[in-house]
């Protein structure tokens, strides 16, 4: 194994330098087949809220974990918890304070491989509170060159200042919230050629 290391290192350096072969491939989300949701508990009953409006920038490849990253921006006005009354309450200052903090963001600082799969060391920012969290996710390559990403993480809503004060009482709304991520990804179109580089060969015009 060890004797292959210098060569592998050389390939990585080359890949990083050229930014092409071997670099983590980038993907775009297929919105119709993707969902970002959370499962909360209200008065002893679970409910699911869906964040309909989000953008994700995904680059992932096991060969280039250093160049892999997951970044998501969620517009919280789009939360749908199957109850207009609850959605209205969710937007107030006691909860997400959507008027002041319309967007929640998620990004990985590093992604490492573990025996059970990839784990992101990530940062989640909601309502101005940034928390570090481990983000284990299942990555499955699809035959069409795309992939699916599935993850479940449990958060404590109080870490993000959601429902503090009188709402902190768990008998009405539970503290633990499970976030469920299911992304269907299509391979991103290759970026346009940078200026100064020779253009991609085109078929000759008759």
């Amino acid at each position: 194994m060890n004797r292959h290391w210098p060569r592998a290192f050389g390939v990585l350096v080359l890949a990083a330098a050229t930014g092409t072969a071997g670099a983590a491939p980038t993907y775009t989300v297929v919105p119709a087949q993707s969902s970002l949701s959370f499962i909360g508990t209200q008065q002893g009953e679970k409910f699911t809220g869906v964040i309909r409006d989000f953008d994700a920038r995904i680059a992932f490849g096991t060969a280039d974990l250093a160049g892999s990253r997951l970044e998501v921006a969620m517009r919280l006005k789009s939360i749908d918890s199957k109850s207009p009354d609850r959605d209205q309450a969710i937007a107030t200052t006691d909860w997400f304070d959507v008027a002041k903090y319309p967007v929640a963001t998620f990004r990985t600082l590093a992604i490492r491989a573990t025996p059970t799969g990839a784990v992101g060391d990530a940062e989640l920012t909601i309502k101005g509170h940034t928390q570090r969290l481990a983000f284990p996710f299942a990555w499955k390559a699809a035959a069409d060159g795309g992939a699916t990403l599935d993850a479940r993480v449990t958060l404590d809503r109080l870490d993000f200042g959601l429902g503090t004060g009188e709402w902190a009482d768990e008998s009405m709304v539970g503290r633990k919230v499970e976030v469920v991520v299911h992304l269907t990804l299509a391979p991103a179109a290759p970026p346009p050629a940078a200026p100064g580089k020779p253009p991609v060969a085109k078929p000759a015009h008759p």
């Binding site: 209200q42 008065q43 002893g44 009953e45 409910f47 918890s81 199957k82 109850s83 207009p84 009354d85 609850r86 008998s171």
Partner: peptide, 22 residues
């Protein structure tokens, strides 16, 4: 229809009679 949970004195929950529907 409002999509709210229904609990009897914190002891048990009852099912919804209908899905959430404004």
């Amino acid at each position: 229809a409002a999509g709210f949970p229904l609990q009897w004195f914190h002891l048990f929950n009852l099912p919804a009679l209908h899905a959430s529907d404004p």
